[in-house]
Amino acid sequence: MRYFLFLILVVGSPIVTAIEWEEQRIFKGANGGETLRVISSTDSSVFAPIIDSFLSAHPYLNIEYRVASSTGIYNEYRQSPDQYDLVISSAMDLQLKLVNDGYAFALDDVDHPEWAQWRQSLFGFTLEPASIVVNKSAFGNLPVPQSRQEMIEVLRANPDVFRGKIGTYDVRQSGLGYLFATQDARASDNYWRLMEIFGNLETRLYCCSGAMIEDLAQGRIAIAFNVLGSYAAARSDLAEKIEIVLPSDFPNIMMRTALIAKSTRRVRSAGLFLRYLVSSRWNDDAGQANTLPSLHLPSIKDKRSIIALEPGLMIFLDRLKRQSFIKEWENAVIH
């Protein structure tokens, strides 16, 4: 279920004002008393099974679940940190910066692998690769590209087929898009070549994964680049229409991370929910495809393709660095 969907094609940087929530939902436990205030960048439809299974184990709690973009969440939480108990976001860099700047509450006794946590404050609980998702019918006889390089070749060879049919994140809007873009740029020069081509082919820019996948399903676009494969896979109704490709040259795998607000007065309940998230138990409890891939994805052998939780993530959040990156990106993608 989607309450608010935005397709943003606005040029220019957003001005930080009162946040506009994409969704606000209250999940009530059977004997709900205390209410946990959770802000998240994850659509409630994807997250609902997790919350439901948590509340069935802890029926004395309610969860107020608000959804906004990862950048929106980051700004909102920095402005009023005492309004929320738990922050869940796909933008690892923004989350890490929140912890670094002292906005998170440390839980000492969470049994979690070293690589999936930072300062016992930020905990990764999903592994979600950045994927190339294609609409099979739009490709026709053309080969579905398996890597960035192959995609460059396909696009160069068939500019007319794909003009206006490519979608990717607007890195100025989407924290996750920015994270994927910077990690891609860090890994290979191919990224800029690809962006040049995207610019030439009048690429559509999206704020969020959901909107991009929706358009892909409707056939408005043929390729969604760097979109979360997990979102696409969660749409089981689209399984026939789309194909999810993990780029074989270098996949970027994101961890959805959660932190407990520094000033929360519901440490115990927030701790319970966070422990539940990192335990991956929801993966079994929910028992359905329509949910997030847990941290223990058997298909991911190489931990190096997981974006590391380390101070380096904050580099691209530097004002000057971000400015120059956005400038370069705009030069490439927007004409």
Partner: peptide, 14 residues
């Protein structure tokens, strides 16, 4: 003044 801080500037502080 332009400043293009390399990733390693911070990742070495891990």
């Amino acid at each position: 003044v332009e400043m293009d801080i390399p990733y390693v500037s911070f990742s070495m502080l891990n």
